[in-house]
């Protein structure tokens, strides 16, 4: 299958950038930090929320999000749409997303190349799918529907995975490139996921990075992982979001930035959440690397 990831995106929203986030560092928005953020108004590029946490009628979450959004750019990151699933998309969930996006008009909307629902069950995890012609067609049809319903382009995130499928006959960079080419969606490049998946499946993350549809990158994610071992004693990295970004991931991030240019970068932390100032310092580190890129990229 030809990968023509440098081709311009197609589709009805192709003229609109998939992400309007500023090319600077952002943080995930956590309720435990609401008051700190309002008190300190940190100089962060943006905040990112998990869409499903705000699919509630009213109350403090909306109160604080409304106030914080007034000061900052916003990214809405869905975790429950199950775009990589075998069944039809959940139209009621799409409706909820549309209401949320109308209310907060975020600079970016993103979701995952993964599934989380099957039948009547929601598993609350980002589960893997085989990569082949049938799943490619289904994922593209799902993304077409999402973009049509929401009236905007979305970003799709590359996953962390722990198993591979016998039924896969397309590799991940080609699979993602084809999705971007067919649907016009952008790529949310999760550098930690790239590192985790390549480690878990014996691949070179730098070689794989160069084969991704990097022209379509609208946002980068960085996070920390946990260490485990597979049954043969090889490293099995877990996408825990429970630790600072690893040095190897910072280095891979630098390589990614050289290829993408400056791009909005999120520090994700969902486990063992530290004080807000600690996360801010990690975001500042990402911001320094983006700024350094701007300086080195200046023509002499």
């Amino acid at each position: 299958m030809a990968s023509s990831h440098r081709a311009p995106p197609r589709g009805p929203f192709a003229a609109v950038p998939a992400s309007a986030l500023p090319a600077s560092a952002g943080l995930g928005l956590k309720p435990e930090h609401f008051l700190d953020i309002l008190a300190t108004r940190p100089a962060l590029g943006f905040f990112e929320i998990h869409a499903e946490n705000y699919m509630v009628p009213g109350g403090p979450f909306h109160h604080y999000l409304g106030r914080i959004r007034a000061d900052h750019a916003l990214s809405v990151h869905g975790v429950g749409l199950s775009i990589g699933g075998a069944g039809p998309l959940d139209e009621a969930h799409l409706d909820r997303l549309a209401v949320l996006l109308d209310r907060y008009a975020p600079e970016s909307f993103s979701e995952h190349l993964a599934w989380s629902s099957h039948g009547e069950r929601y598993f609350n995890d980002l589960l893997p799918a085989p990569y082949n012609a049938a799943t490619l067609a289904a994922v593209c049809a799902h993304i077409d529907r999402v973009q049509e319903r929401l009236g905007r382009r979305m970003l799709l995130e590359n996953p962390s995975t722990y198993v591979e499928f016998v039924a896969s006959d397309i590799d991940e960079p080609v699979f993602l490139s084809e999705i971007v080419r067919r649907t016009g969606c952008g790529l949310l490049l999760d550098v930690n996921n790239l590192y985790v998946s390549c480690t878990n499946h014996g691949r070179d993350p730098y070689a794989e990075l160069e084969r991704l549809p990097l022209a379509a990158v609208g946002e980068i994610h960085l996070a920390g992982f946990a260490h485990a071992l597979d049954s043969r004693g090889a490293p099995l990295l877990i996408d825990s979001h429970g630790a600072p970004v690893a040095q190897a991931v910072w280095t891979l991030y630098d390589a990614a930035l050289m290829l993408t240019g400056p791009v909005a970068t999120l520090i994700e932390r969902d486990n063992d959440i530290p004080a807000f100032a600690v996360l801010c310092a990690e975001a500042m580190e990402a911001g320094r690397r983006i700024a350094a890129l701007n300086e080195t990229a200046m023509p002499a």
């Binding site: 598993f123 609350n124 995890d125 589960l127 085989p130 722990y162 198993v163 591979e164 499928f165 016998v166 039924a167 878990n200 499946h201 014996g202 691949r203 485990a228 597979d230 049954s231 043969r232 090889a234 099995l236 877990i238």
Partner: peptide
């Protein structure tokens, strides 16, 4: 239908998902 690059046990790798779902 699960596989791994180094011949390690796919069931042990699948257990990561079982844990994630249950624990979360």
């Amino acid at each position: 239908g699960l596989t791994s690059w180094n011949g390690s046990d796919p069931a042990q790798r699948f257990a990561v998902y079982r844990n994630n779902v249950t624990v979360s």
